[in-house]
Design a binder for these strands. Structure first.
Lengths: 186, 186
DNA sequence: TGGTACATGTAACATGTTACATGATTAG
DNA sequence: CTAATCATGTAACATGTTACATGTACCA
């Protein structure tokens, strides 16, 4: 007789339930969607999403809705999934958990030749400028909650740019925007 | 004949080397130090630090310097550890990896009664205000790299406070600073 | 003499990442 | 026909977290 261990779903899984509420999606779609919309503040990886989707399906919180072309499996939230999400979102959110290696690099800046530092800052500046551009390109639906989340994105990217632009002379990247060849990294 | 697999040290271990460069420290000291100075941008846990210290010692990057009272083991960086750190810090730092669950909560704000949201924002506001206070209490050693890192801390906390203070009427916490009983969480 | 801060560490568990494997569909 | 993109998923590995266990030293 297997012991049924009552486990809570984790934050990643819970957030997926949230994203599936209005539009059923596949793992692939979810990965793209979450990253695009809130990826800067809610880091996720494809592998983890597929894992959690499996767990959610086992618990009956999501079900396969339809199958698209290729092997696309589209999941939608069940009533119990909806309930689980609403219960989860009521919890006090954890305080931020961040890793900004660039800040560490700056903290240990003495260990780096100025030209290396400038190059690093330049690349990061381009990244954050690109993120800001993306955020600004979203339609500003003021008065909605997603807009409030977006506002944080804008404020954060602006803060980073302000930070880099306030760096000491020798290492500060030039104001001229760096033109990017490809898409932003990851 | 065991195959010697050449493994790089990871970012956490590398950062510890950095912190040990000027002052030998124990795992306990490191935990406190890293959190205090750069914990908001470089999340670490005690357990992980003890693990990595062990790895660093095995590789000869750190050695036990002295033993203090109790079971205190103080580690200092060896010349090869110094070299490893300098090599590591030259790498282009990864882009930010962040989890700000509060932003997710706001994104899904529709699922939450306004009074719950206000309470959550209030608590987070207090946290970030406290962090800002701590940063401002550090001596401002302008012109040094650690100061530049600190500047990011200040800019970030200010951005979050500005974000929360710009929330819609119904959920916005009152301007009056919330007096905290204990220390900030974790 | 009792509480708090200091101090180390492990075990069990959970989460996250990277690389790999496989194949379908679409646009040119 | 070919490259790019869409799409799923796993295996192996790495990292991170929580709870627990143990004990010391200091201070009031």
């Amino acid at each position: 007789m297997a012991r049924e261990k009552r486990v809570e779903i984790n934050a990643t899984a819970a957030s997926l339930l949230g994203f599936l509420q209005n539009e059923p999606m596949s793992g692939w779609d979810l990965t793209a969607r979450v990253r695009e919309i809130i990826g800067d503040f809610w880091n996720v990886t494809k592998s983890q999403i597929y894992k959690e989707l499996k767990v959610l399906a086992e618990r009956g919180y999501v079900v396969e809705k339809e199958s698209g072309p290729r092997d696309k499996h589209v999941f939608g939230v069940t009533p119990s999934g909806r309930a689980a999400f609403r219960a989860w979102i009521k919890n006090r959110p954890d305080i931020p958990n961040m890793r900004l290696p660039i800040v560490l690099t700056v903290f240990f800046g003495d260990a780096l030749p100025p030209e290396d530092m400038r190059s690093i800052l330049e690349q990061h500046r381009a990244h954050h400028e690109e993120r800001l551009r993306v955020y600004r390109s979203f339609p500003a639906q003021e008065g909605t909650w997603p807009y409030e989340a977006l506002r944080m994105g804008i404020l954060f990217q602006e803060a980073v740019l302000k930070w880099i632009d306030g760096m000491p002379e020798g290492v500060r990247p030039q104001m001229k925007t760096i033109v990017q060849k490809g898409r932003s990294r990851r």
